[in-house]
Design a protein around this nucleic acid. Sequence first.
DNA 1: ATAATAAACGCAACATTGTTGCATTTGAAT
DNA 2: ATTCAAATGCAACAATGTTGCGTTTATTAT
Lengths: 124, 124
Amino acid sequence: MKATPVRLKVLEVLSATHLALSPSELEASFSKVDRITLYRTLKDFEEAGMIHKIIDTDGVTRFAFCNDDCPDATHTEDHVHFNCKKCHKMFCLAHVQTPSLQLPDGFSSTGINTVVHGVCKHCA
Amino acid sequence: MKATPVRLKVLEVLSATHLALSPSELEASFSKVDRITLYRTLKDFEEAGMIHKIIDTDGVTRFAFCNDDCPDATHTEDHVHFNCKKCHKMFCLAHVQTPSLQLPDGFSSTGINTVVHGVCKHCA
DNA sequence: ATAATAAACGCAACATTGTTGCATTTGAAT
DNA sequence: ATTCAAATGCAACAATGTTGCGTTTATTAT
């Protein structure tokens, strides 16, 4: 994987925030980048385990960089996400672990996606 | 709200399964129905509290009828959903309650969306 | 430093999902 | 049967995401 300007910019923006950003938000933050290239960059980063993808309460796809306070170096997304209903931002709550739960017989889990919906610290 | 053929069909299909179905799956199951009408029907049902909407692991919007084993008559979606990575079906686990969790200071929750990813009973 | 090459980019074109406006049809109540 | 609001279906549009392909660029070896 080559160190190109587009990739460096995306990494820079994502690593500087604890928010999960959508492709269009990212596109808007540096308007020089082609939409398709951005999609491919995000896909590459995700496959490389550098960022993770989550879908917010409204069905919007978002990507987040796991900072070093991420409990799991493999970025398996075992933390909780918080979706604010006012500002619509999505926070990675890196320290809130996904609770375990009891599944019915025959069902086996490989991951749990927990998205909390509510009002964030800044909108309260 | 009028009892029209389209609405009756949608209710019939959704009430006969414990799966959450996407608009296109519903459209395919009775090919006479206009896509737009279906979207509006689902929206109306959702606003009336008869069905609930959930986004699956792949970002696909799905709708499910809460059967009488649904723990909450207000359909507030306080149960867990299971998304099979093989058949891609989404099950309403009506008896598995959403676990509560501890949020950071300042964040308040109005709902938690839990989607378990894994292999279902039939694909195991 | 330069040339070679595989990777990344950007454009066109397309597919899917979802929404809105508007004219027409239809369910239900009189 | 008549009426009228509600529901439908069509056209048109917007947003999101993907693929093919020719061009550019970052790295690697010369």
